[in-house]
Design a protein around this nucleic acid. Structure first.
Length: 424
DNA sequence: TCTGGGGTCCTAGGACCC
DNA sequence: TCTGGGGTCCTAGGACCC
């Protein structure tokens, strides 16, 4: 049996946690650069604010109640996510963090002791009392069904956020699936649901009852697994330790359009540096560095330009200097004057766990000496909390830096921002 | 003026090998 | 008329997730 715990309106709830004055009020959180709405409190949903709308399109709208808006504060969300994880772990030791606000739990055997629904409510109460955040919980014999249960728990108020589907009560499962539109099933997106609709498959139950072989022929093995999971056959296991990453991406939209080569070099340098840092924290080396640049796809009267170039490295590296150098070489191959660039990024691929390579035993190019020590020193300073060092190519406080005008304090990760309580 | 960021997996097709 | 069979590796593109 799997459990799925999901924090309600996670980012918006984080913003109200240390602001009791905002409880029950419309709160929205914006994407990086204060671009789109990516989280809404219940009250904001009632006002009709849709997920993903660009904020500039609705910010001057006349809402019946004032809307409280925040820039994304990932330091805060990440730290609260870890608190929720720790809280869940106290009740179910085997957990998989699936995303910043969702955790899969192994609840096998709980049913022998108490009803799964009862357990779900206890879990919810525990997380609320230890973190101040409310989770929804779905319990079922497969991950896909746990997702459906969680969806239903949110959809129908009478469940109070908790719903369990057991193999013994297949009737209840089928009832739920017959009410769930197929596009709400985990793993079925817009494209697939459109194609499924042409085959007469409209609900989760329709999908569960379709022939797995036919689904595999017409779609892929991925959707076949979904069909099996909906029928209670577990195909997707709990992954307690995340598998090593296969790709690292660092990319940002610019706060202001970038039009000069120098500014773009600074931006790409910064992204390469950040990507290298992530690579080292994964204890990996990479052999492939790619850079992309693009103009805004939304502006009319301006030709769109987007391009990507990559460099293969002879020796696997995790040294920021190698990665910046490769990124700069790649950038030079795709840079075009005369565009107003909106975004750029750096991607690392083709990882190995070590830097040495048999192939290059007789090669002239040898790894940099003391690379390891230097990177250790750099990372050590940057993690110390005492200060930062960086490569000069990144520049200092450039114009194109991401906009976050509505950022809340780092309540849980910076001493001066820790909220204080006053006795009256 | 203004529209996020970071991932995974699968498939098809081409290059190349024997 | 008629042009093998079997395999690997790589890449691009498409789908999905949060």
């Amino acid at each position: 049996m799997f459990g799925l715990a999901d924090v309600n309106s996670f980012y918006a709830s984080c913003e109200t946690l240390f602001r009791p004055d905002l409880r029950g009020k419309p709160v929205v959180v914006l994407s990086n650069n204060d671009g789109c709405v990516i989280a809404r409190s219940a009250a904001a949903k009632i006002l009709g604010i849709k997920m993903g709308v660009p904020w500039f399109q609705i910010k001057s709208q006349d809402f019946p109640e004032s809307v409280h808006v925040f820039s994304s504060n990932y330091a805060l969300y990440h730290s609260l996510s870890q608190r929720v994880m720790a809280s869940l772990e106290e009740m179910t030791p085997r957990i998989e963090q699936y995303s910043i606000d969702e955790m899969f739990l192994d609840v096998t055997g709980i049913g022998a002791v108490e009803e799964y629904d009862t357990f779900g409510h206890r879990l919810r109460a525990h997380v609320l009392s230890t973190t101040g955040l409310t989770v929804g919980c779905g319990l079922a014999p497969t991950k896909t069904l746990a997702k459906s249960a969680q969806w239903a728990g949110k959809e129908w108020k009478q469940f109070r956020g908790v719903l369990a589907l057991t193999p013994e009560n297949r009737k209840r499962t089928e009832k739920l699936l017959s009410l769930q539109p197929v596009e709400e099933v985990w793993g079925v997106g817009r494209r697939l649901s459109k194609k499924l609709a042409t085959m007469g498959i409209k609900t989760a139950l329709d999908l569960a009852r379709s022939n797995p072989a036919l689904i595999r022929r017409n779609f892929s093995v991925v959707l076949e697994r979904t069909v099996r999971e909906l029928n209670g056959e577990s195909c997707i296991l709990l992954e307690e330790t995340p598998p090593p990453k296969q790709q690292i991406v660092c990319s940002r939209s610019f706060g202001e359009r970038v039009t000069t080569y120098d500014a773009m070099r600074q931006a790409v340098c910064q992204y390469a540096e950040r990507a290298a840092e992530k690579l080292r924290s994964e204890r990996q080396f990479c052999r492939h560095v790619a850079v992309f640049v693009k103009t805004s796809p939304f502006t009319e009267n301006e030709p769109y330009y987007g391009n990507v170039a990559s460099e293969k490295l002879l020796i696997p590296t995790q040294d920021t200097r190698d990665i910046i150098a490769a990124a700069m070489k790649a950038l030079d191959r795709i840079w075009l004057n005369g565009h107003r660039y909106a975004k750029a990024g750096c991607m690392l691929n083709d990882f190995t766990p070590t830097g040495v390579s048999q192939l290059n035993l007789f090669d002239d190019t040898q790894p940099r000496s003391n690379s390891n020590q230097l990177m250790k020193v750099v990372d050590g300073i940057n993690h110390s909390g005492l200060g930062k060092v960086w490569f000069a190519g990144r520049g200092i406080a450039p114009d194109w830096q991401m906009k976050r005008d509505l950022l809340s304090p780092a309540y849980t990760t910076r001493w001066v921002d820790v909220p204080s309580a006053r006795l009256c």
